[in-house]
Amino acid sequence: MNNVTQRDALFSRLYEIARSDRNVVIVAADMGAPALDQFRIDMPQQFVNVGIAEQNAILIGSGLALEGKRVYVYAISPFITLRCLENIRVSCLFQGIRLTILGMGTGLSYCTDGPTHHLLEDVAVMRAFPGMRVVNLSDNQMAAAYVDISAHNERDVLYIRIDKDFYPDVHKPGTDFSRGFVRLRQGNDLMIAATGPMVHTALHVADVLATEGISVSVMDVFEFPFDPVAFISDISEVRKIITLEEHFLPGGMGSAICETLNDKERYLPVRRVGLSMTQGYKPSYQYGGREVTRRHYGIDQEAIYRTVRDYLKN
């Protein structure tokens, strides 16, 4: 288990890059972080705080970026995405502005903060825009690596989803993230394609199934769009897929995989597992911790294990 969050891993790497590139600017909407404190102290001229004004954060960021700054807009994820969609579309994407959006606390990260702070639709929404790259972090290796990737980005808007919890690393240092997915484990009976925090759940479920003699492959799918050709080629031996995401199903990671399989005429059985929509947002009003809220949405660890088992039987 890492003793720092994805956010701090990301900001530590960004600090190093910003020290040697004064064009790196963070635009924050009244957001801090332990690893950001040193940044603010050492490089106050590269840190802009706009206050609780996310739309303005995007707009100010677009102006800075037009003048050659390498901008990182940092705010609580639902507010910097859903609230600012049209600002991102008009003031960044239309004009080919390179910019990175750091969305803090995606999915059910802010579990007990209640529904306003849950973000369960953004992968669907954000990946609908051309020129947008949606990145769903699963560990600290990836968090740091995407700072380097963003530092070489010249034309796209990167939207990086940052989870609030502590996780162990699942990727090795030096992992190539360029295809948008990485196979973490090989297996014969089924592949679980997971994204974000669900990668850890997938690995856990695979471990449990291994003790039962079932061999499950696990893939981390973290960037949208991912490389479709590489994806099809990578899954040549796979016969069945379960997709796993802490997100509503329409337009999410599972949808992205189904779209790719369909468009490439690789017809495989796919079961998508994500947040149930049958109760609307009611599960977001269930408190007690992330796993409790997940249980009400139907994707706690136990439910996922059962779903995978059932799917194997079919």
Binding site: L59, I60, G61, G63, L64, E67, E86, N87, S91
Partner: peptide, 21 residues
């Protein structure tokens, strides 16, 4: 300098440019 038509946005971009200057 910019694409505009959705009101209220160009002004923030302008302020960002002024800050960059």
């Amino acid at each position: 300098e910019i694409t505009a038509g959705s009101l209220g946005q160009g002004y923030g971009t302008a302020a960002g440019i002024a800050l960059a200057a």
